[in-house]
């Protein structure tokens, strides 16, 4: 018996089994690659941005349930938002995982992403959840540079 429901909630497991927006975007306007050398997780985020709006976003890669579901939920969370709004969500998400308090300050901004708050109790897994977000940030800022968690 074990207790890890706070980490592996039903919705997280669902995104892990059936990741949303998985694959590349043929007419993407930018993309970035992220890598976690500690566990070998690797993700590529594709963006289609037009008039400062994230019209489409997708991801590809290999990783654990936390990294895959986080990437999947991220694509749902930022699609249709402006670049500026997407970056605000990124900041709120990162804040949620790196503060030890049980309270989530930015519930309104985060929406469904708040489900991943449980990850903050597992310090070794925080990078799994944030890898795709850092990669998204690099793609949004058009740097196109690769991201590493280390």
């Amino acid at each position: 018996m074990f207790d890890a429901q706070d980490l592996y909630q039903e919705i997280v497991m669902d995104h892990n089994r059936r990741p949303r927006n998985f694959g590349s975007i043929a007419d993407s306007t930018s993309s970035s690659e992220g890598f976690n050398p500690l566990c070998g997780d690797q993700v590529t985020v594709f963006l289609k941005v037009s008039d400062e709006i994230v019209e489409d976003v997708s991801f590809e890669g290999v990783g654990c349930a936390i990294s895959k579901s986080s990437a999947s939920m991220m694509t749902e969370g930022v699609k249709g938002k402006s670049v500026e709004e997407a970056l605000i969500v990124f900041q709120a998400f990162r804040r949620m995982l790196t503060t030890t308090s049980d309270q989530v300050e930015d519930s309104e901004i985060l929406g469904d992403l708040e489900i991943l708050k449980g990850v903050s109790q597992y310090p070794t897994r925080i990078k799994c959840a944030t890898l795709s977000w850092h990669t998204l940030q690099a793609a949004l800022q058009g740097s196109g540079s690769d991201v590493s968690t280390e």
Binding site: A4, C39, C64, I66, C128
Partner: peptide
């Protein structure tokens, strides 16, 4: 069906 990292976390819970 289960990535080593997830398995490691679950085993740690045990």
């Amino acid at each position: 069906d289960i990535h080593p990292h997830d398995l490691g976390t679950l085993l740690d819970q045990m």
